[in-house]
């Protein structure tokens, strides 16, 4: 048993090396003096300076973070509640529903992007006519449409992860709490959520990652005010990826890594 765990730990070390190998490389190359990211031309802080002065790139990073955060919240709620209900109740045509959820996962991004674009365009006309009767606001492609599209392909990931966690659980476990007088929502919150938490965390991490990195669907549903980081980067690739893009990734990875480790330490100290 000990031996098996030790082997797994060693293997995990190797896998972490594999996962971080390109990341180490891009951090190193963010200090590259050459403007083409694939040739080493000496040490330089030039790209960090350029990044600092690149307003649109920083704005795009902010937009991406906002979109990913909202998408994650929506996906977690939809996915967790959906998985629970599908598990608890015997819905008619459940199998069809189960398959439907996978459609956003299986179809290539370009198709999803195009069909969402058409959908939003078709919907926009009557929706705006209706909105116009009582408000100045207007439905246009932008943050809202990107978040909708991202949530549509992210929430199945949460749903699948939570369903796996649910397997074998007594479907009426939270009724015990209800019998003790807790309202259904509170019972769900107190009994199910803590139990499902590991799967919810996994699902949230996957949603956030998918949303941060999505480019094709985003292209079709974005508006002029909602450029995201991946969109910017794909555009820049045409001109030659300059190391300021490595710099933005490096800053991002290091910042999150530090944040995660520090918050972990703080939590331990508080205990």
């Amino acid at each position: 048993m000990e031996l098996v765990n030790l082997l797994c730990a060693g293997w995990s070390g190797v896998v972490f090396l594999f996962l971080y190998l390109p990341i180490v490389l891009l951090v190193v190359y963010s200090f590259n003096a050459s403007e083409l990211s694939i040739i080493w031309g000496g040490f330089s802080f030039e790209w960090y300076e350029k990044l600092w002065n690149n307003g649109p790139l920083i704005d795009a990073t902010k937009n991406s973070l906002i979109i990913a955060a909202v998408t994650t919240v929506l996906s977690v709620v939809l996915g967790t509640v959906g998985a629970w209900l599908l598990y608890r109740y015997k819905f008619p045509a459940l199998r069809a529903l189960g398959t439907l959820i996978f459609i956003p996962m299986v179809i290539p991004e370009v198709i999803m992007g195009v069909s969402m674009l058409i959908l939003f365009t078709v919907v926009a006309v009557p929706l705006n006519a209706w909105l116009g009767t009582f408000t100045e606001a207007e439905f246009a492609r932008g943050f809202a449409t990107i978040i909708i599209a991202h949530t549509t392909f992210c929430f199945p990931f949460v749903l699948v992860a939570v369903q796996a966690r649910l397997a074998g659980v007594d479907p009426f476990i939270e009724e015990a709490a209800m019998d003790l007088g807790a309202p259904p929502l509170k019972a769900f919150w107190l009994v199910m959520v803590p139990y499902l938490l590991p799967a919810i965390v996994s699902g949230a991490l996957m949603s956030f990652t998918l949303s941060m990195d999505e480019v094709i669907v985003t292209f079709f549903v974005t508006g002029p005010e909602s450029q995201t980081l991946p969109l910017k980067i794909f555009g820049l690739a045409k001109k030659g990826l300059d190391p300021s893009l490595n710099a933005v990734s490096a800053v991002f990875v290091l910042a999150t890594a530090v944040l995660v480790v520090v918050s972990d330490r703080v939590r331990k100290l508080n205990r």
């Binding site: 996962l19 991946p230 980067i233």
Partner: peptide, 13 residues
């Protein structure tokens, strides 16, 4: 989270 962090960089990069 450490498993996921590498994927918060851009796919292209």
């Amino acid at each position: 989270t450490l498993v996921m962090i590498p994927f918060w960089t851009s796919f292209l990069i």
